[in-house]
Design a protein around this nucleic acid. Structure first.
Length: 113
DNA sequence: ACCGTGACTGGCA
DNA sequence: ATGCCAGCCACGG
């Protein structure tokens, strides 16, 4: 590829994937990391989310939780309860900072089943 | 160029 | 079942 063109950074891919998450669905960092590539790990996803605040359009990071279905990053939304409220507003149920029936709400993207 | 940090995950005790 | 440790890669100072 012509070196002139800068390939999209793995961060951009993460944003695209997260934005693809339909309303009322959630996903895990590990899933996204695997979708982006081996160069990206779960930690990188979380780190990328940190930068997502400046990304446009805004990335629904509140739909991204850890593999436990726990709102690990809720503290990064400006309010410790904002993330939960956002998810609940989408029809999800949060109990003790954890998503109930998380397995049913987990979004695996079209590529996966 | 080196070190520290990070919204994770999986394995082992 | 719970807790701790190590691995993973990238970015900022």
């Amino acid at each position: 590829m012509a070196s002139s063109s800068k390939e999209l950074t793995w961060i951009e891919k993460i944003y695209a994937l997260v934005r693809k998450i339909p309303k009322g669905r959630v996903t895990t960092y590990g899933t996204i990391a695997e979708k982006v590539g081996t160069r990206t790990t779960s930690r990188m996803v979380g780190w990328a989310m940190n930068a997502s605040h400046t990304a446009t359009p805004r990335v629904p990071a509140h739909r991204v939780v850890n593999r436990n279905g726990v709102l690990t990053g809720k503290h990064h939304f400006g309010s410790p309860t904002l993330m939960q409220e956002l998810l609940e507003a989408e029809g999800l149920t949060i109990e003790n900072d954890k998503i109930l029936n998380f397995n049913e709400y987990k979004y695996l993207f079209d590529d996966e089943k």
